[in-house]
């Protein structure tokens, strides 16, 4: 097999078993996506070129009890933006978004059949990571949410274009404009989640699904995927521009400060 078959990083690890690439997230407290995670995701995206040649599926999951992923590392974002001038901070944000979009687009367009096995918190950037996958398998305690409006922002890792691609507009408006979270059952009802399984069973179910996928001709599956799952490149570009325009507003700094310094018992609730 080509590519690094195994990798053990600080934020994520991967290995290949029987044609299935398993990407495990394990950065406490809940796989917040910051510069460390992004660097390792970029390594994974590079390795995919080789790994894909002999694989048929990719399963992404979290090893942490707290959940799949709580989204962007807001503490890092706030601290970094405080440590530099506004224009420099904005350039940093745009650069981060450009890089993470490249990773997300690479995963979205992979010829492999990709599965997110999620549990617990699947918020913001974590939700966006799950949405690049072809299938989402959720355990009963998974919750999905886009709380970005609370910070004066919109989702920035490709969330809106992919929501619009995959779901009805009314559901997209509900998720975005109220910032409320959906449980797994609701997420399945609206067409976001493929399977809902018992607590702790998402990875097992994802492996069983990956094994089933392995029975099909790879080339046919890749052709079908390319046909039915277009990447909304134009909207993704627009999302970065809108995010950066919003990020330059004073309300965002205030929102981030409030979140980072919050002692509220429910800071994750919109």
């Amino acid at each position: 097999m080509s590519g690094a078959e195994q990798f053990k990083g600080q934020a994520l690890s991967w290995e290949v078993n029987g044609g299935v690439i398993e990407l495990a997230l394990h950065r406490p407290p809940c796989n917040e996506l910051g510069s460390l995670s992004l660097g390792e995701f970029e390594q994974f995206a590079s390795a995919l070129d080789g790994l894909e040649k002999d694989a048929h599926a990719l399963v992404i999951y979290s090893e942490l009890k707290s959940g799949f992923c709580a989204g962007a590392d807001l503490r890092e974002l706030y601290q970094r933006s405080q440590a530099m001038e506004k224009s420099q901070a904005l350039r940093g944000v745009r650069d981060f978004l450009e890089r993470i979009h490249r990773v997300m687009n690479r995963l979205d367009a992979s010829p492999l059949t990709t599965i997110a096995a999620v549990h617990g918190v699947t918020f913001g950037g974590g939700f966006e990571l799950a949405m690049v996958c072809d299938l989402i398998i959720a355990d009963k305690l998974a919750r999905f949410c886009f709380p970005e409006l609370r910070l004066g922002l919109i989702p920035g890792f490709g969330g809106i274009p992919r929501l619009k691609r995959d779901l009805g507009n009314a559901v997209v408006r509900d998720l975005l404009l109220t910032g409320r979270s959906f449980n797994a059952t609701k997420a399945q009802q609206v067409g976001l989640v493929s399977q809902v399984v018992a607590e702790g069973e998402a990875v097992r179910a994802a492996r069983a699904t990956a094994a089933q996928i392995g029975k099909f001709d790879r080339s046919t599956a890749a052709t079908a995927k390319q046909f039915i799952k277009p990447i909304p490149h134009e909207e993704l570009r627009r999302e970065i521009d809108i995010f950066c325009e919003l990020f330059s507003r004073p309300a965002v700094e205030a929102g981030l400060k409030k979140f980072v310094e919050s002692t509220d018992a429910q800071p994750y609730l919109p």
């Binding site: 407290p29 809940c30 707290s66 959940g67 709580a70 617990g120 918190v121 009963k140 305690l141 998974a142 919750r143 979270s181 449980n183 797994a184 059952t185 609701k186 509220d264 018992a265 429910q266 800071p267 994750y268 609730l269």
Partner: peptide
């Protein structure tokens, strides 16, 4: 903590079949 509160919320929604 706040993350476990979300677990409780989900448990309650599932148990009572409400949103």
């Amino acid at each position: 903590d706040s993350l476990q509160t979300l677990d409780l919320l989900t448990k309650l929604e599932n148990h009572f079949h409400v949103e």
